[in-house]
Simulated assay, not measured.
Amino acid sequence: MDQQPAGTDRALQAARKALDEAPEGEPQPHWSAWVDHQELDIMAGRCWAELKRPLRSVPVLSRALDAFPDEHARDKSLYLSWLAEAYITAGEVEQAAAITRRALELSTDVASIRPRQRIDVVLAHLRPYSDVAEVREVLGLAGP
Rank of each mutant, 00 (worst) to 15 (best):
M1Y: 03
D2K: 05
D2T: 00
Q3G: 02
Q4H: 02
T8S: 10
L19Q: 09
E21Y: 00
E24S: 09
E24D: 15
E26T: 12
P29E: 03
P29V: 07
A33L: 06
A33S: 08
Q38Y: 03
L40A: 09
M43T: 07
A44R: 06
A44Y: 02
G45Y: 09
R46E: 15
A49Q: 11
K52S: 08
R53I: 01
R53S: 03
P59A: 14
V60P: 07
L61K: 03
L61E: 11
S62K: 05
S62P: 01
R63Y: 11
R63H: 13
A67N: 13
P69R: 06
D70C: 06
D70F: 07
R74Y: 05
K76L: 03
L78A: 09
Y79C: 03
Y79G: 01
L83I: 08
A84N: 07
A86R: 04
Y87N: 13
I88L: 11
A97L: 11
A97E: 15
A97V: 11
I99N: 05
T100E: 15
R102L: 06
R102P: 02
A103K: 04
T108C: 05
T108V: 13
S112D: 15
S112W: 07
R116A: 14
R116V: 14
I119E: 15
I119P: 05
V121A: 13
V122R: 04
V122T: 15
L123R: 01
L123V: 03
L123W: 04
A124H: 02
H125K: 08
L126M: 13
L126G: 05
P128F: 04
Y129I: 05
Y129C: 02
S130C: 07
V132Y: 09
V132F: 07
R136L: 07
R136V: 05
A142F: 06
A142N: 13
G143V: 13
